[in-house]
Design a protein around this nucleic acid. Structure first.
Lengths: 217, 217
DNA sequence: ACTTCCCAACCGAACGGTCGGTTGATCTGC
DNA sequence: GCAGATCAACCGACCGTTCGGTTGGGAAGT
């Protein structure tokens, strides 16, 4: 009973958050109006203000709610001890690509960029709770491999640059050129991910096992 | 005389474009009002509409004007035959980092992402005249090196992913976290560029001459 | 069991203000 | 005197936000 009620209450809130996230993705922050938001939610504008004190708070809730679920996946990653070093980084790539390209919070990055000047606190929060945590998990995985001698020692600032750069840009490009009818041939996620992983493994000093060249011993 | 007049007329236009570009960078497209724009230009709003038929046209002019000057630098790059292959790609990295991070058009990318859903034609134009041309120049430089045997053959989609990804993300990050007081220590352009170039050279099959490890022959 | 009260949720209507865009008059340089 | 540049004033539409009021399902009082 109490559960039903709770579900009902939070589902309304979640419903608004989902619609708002989609709207912010489509039209940006300033381009999204509370009137439009109310319309797609099927409620009156005033009712929005019953659930959220203002537009800015609503946006912050979208971001917070978004990375809450995203970062959990990352923490699971590091904890898994059944994988060897290369398997671990492969799993990490799968996870990072999925989060950045498919999850709301990853896709919201350009919108956060839009408001970063007028709401610098949101940018700070986003960096601390999303960017920095992603970097920390990657750094843990790599440094563990370095200690075991699997990888060469790394400049981690450069490594983050090389790992996150292509992923974030791919996500941005896919948002930016979403209107292209040949989006997946322009930006084929799996192919780019595989090439990217291969390059990073090379950079880490791991012989690339995927090497397609038939090289007779 | 005619030159003076032309300068006068076009300087007014350039003045507006510069102020508008900065405003769009600060507040995004929807967040920038024509009223505010007129104020920072020191003219009346109606005068803006004398020079540009509308807000959207003004924005397009900002983008167009931005990459007009940016792409010229790129074409110079490919034409220079006094450089060898590695020098050429090093110069290309300098140029790409400079354009993407410092020039208006590079920094405008997040704003184009903001409007890409409502103005898909702008996104298309941006891709054709800026993204695609950058990729074409890079591809020419690399493929010339491949033909001469300096580089390993490449999957160019992956290569673009690896080269442009970190640069664009660095630019985005610096816009996004411009409010950080330690921006340059968080995102040290020269250090990241050097590490990035080194990794790409490795990927191209070039022995890294910058290798800091003292390795006795 | 029945009344009273509470309160979250929702609504229609309106607030002051700003939006992108327009009008017609005035100024300026040739 | 004439064409282009600039201006103050204005327009309807829409913005984020708030108001006063209604609803309906539980808790409290008797």
């Amino acid at each position: 009973m109490a559960e039903v009620k709770e579900n009902h209450v939070s589902s309304r809130r979640q419903e608004i958050l989902a619609a708002a996230t989609q709207a912010f993705l489509d039209k940006g922050f300033s381009g999204t109006s509370m009137t439009h938001l109310a319309k797609v939610c099927g409620i009156q504008k005033a009712s929005l203000y019953h659930h959220f004190p203002g537009k800015e708070d609503l946006f912050i809730a979208c971001v917070t709610d978004g990375y809450a679920q995203a970062v959990d996946q990352l923490d699971d990653l590091h904890g898994d001890d059944t994988l060897n070093d290369v398997e671990k980084i492969t799993a990490a790539f799968d996870c990072l690509y999925r989060i950045t390209i498919s999850s709301p919070v990853g896709r919201l990055s350009p919108v956060i960029a839009e408001v970063s000047r007028t709401m610098p606190n949101v940018a700070k929060m986003f960096h601390a709770n999303y960017i920095a945590r992603q970097q920390a998990v990657l750094e843990k995985i790599i440094s563990a491999g370095v200690e075991r001698g699997s990888y060469r020692p790394q400049n981690y600032k450069v490594l983050h640059h090389l790992v996150f750069g292509p992923i974030v840009t791919l996500s941005l490009s896919r948002e930016m050129f979403a209107s292209f009818d040949d989006l997946d041939s322009h930006f084929p996620v799996d192919e780019l991910k595989a090439g990217h992983l291969s390059a990073i493994l090379t950079e880490l000093g791991v012989a690339d096992t995927m090497q397609p060249l038939s090289q007779p011993a």
